Computed example of a mutant assay.
Amino acid sequence: MFIQPWDAGLDEAEWQSWIAEGHDFGQLSVNGLPGHPPVVVPTHFTGDGTHLLIHLARPNPVWRTIEHDPNVTFTVIGDYAFIPGPWRAKSDTPPTDGVPTSYYAAVQFSCRAHIVDDPEAKADLLRRQLAHFQPDGDHAPVGADQPPYGRMLSGIRGLRLEVADVRAKFKYDDHKPVEHRAAVADRLTERGAGLDVPTARQQLRRLDRMGPWQP
């Protein structure tokens, strides 16, 4: 992932807070077997500090590739929007001369994957995931030796992704003048399509924290 200096995360707390806000769905990318393309799997995830926790169906073809090479990348993308060229045109040029772009936030985790096959360890992984996604506890107990989950554990395998490196990108035209960034955020809010509003919120958050771009 190419990151311009003005698009870089300001500190670890920035991307950690962004993930904690509910960005808990991403893509697991695994090197393919010799002669085959990489395998990419969309999935929810949770974390336990230094690991990302995932479970996938046992028939998933990703297992063979992980066993061949456990070095993987997990990518989370959100708060994205297309920015039309006229919104970015300089004041002394025709609006049609503006160059369009995309705004987005992305966090990439470089990891070493550890497969979880022990029934009790898989049950513990599921309990951690349910604690995140169903915090009200409105589900049956998850145990390796009791229904309904116990009999289904054989149909899944777990993954603990040991995080080795994190790269964060917040691409919101932070190198542009303050007035330009504020105006684009207003236009995004007014347009209100797709993820326009959360995209504007990210742009204003970065603007408030960064102010004018300083190389």
Rank of each mutant, 00 (worst) to 15 (best):
V163W: 08
A105R: 00
D186Q: 11
E190C: 13
S154G: 13
M152Y: 00
R191F: 09
R167I: 07
E162N: 10
G155Q: 02
Y172H: 01
Y149F: 11
Y104M: 10
V178G: 14
D124H: 02
L159G: 03
C111F: 04
A113V: 04
M152N: 04
E190M: 12
A123R: 00
H139Q: 11
H180R: 08
G155P: 03
R167A: 09
K176C: 12
H132W: 10
R157L: 10
A193G: 11
E120D: 01
R112N: 06
K169Y: 01
D124P: 01
Q108S: 10
R157Y: 02
P135L: 13
R112E: 13
L126P: 06
R151C: 02
D186R: 12
M152K: 02
Q129Y: 11
A193D: 07
L130Y: 05
G158N: 05
A106W: 01
I156T: 06
L188F: 13
S102A: 13
H175V: 03
Q146K: 07
R127Q: 06
A164H: 14
D136I: 12
A106R: 09
V142S: 09
P141E: 08
D138K: 12
L126M: 11
G143R: 09
L153F: 14
R127T: 05
E190H: 15
A140W: 12
D186Y: 00
K122L: 09
C111S: 08
R127S: 05
L161Y: 15
A106L: 12
H180E: 13
A168L: 03
I115K: 02
P119G: 10
L126A: 08
R128D: 07
V178M: 13
V184T: 14
I156R: 08
A113H: 09
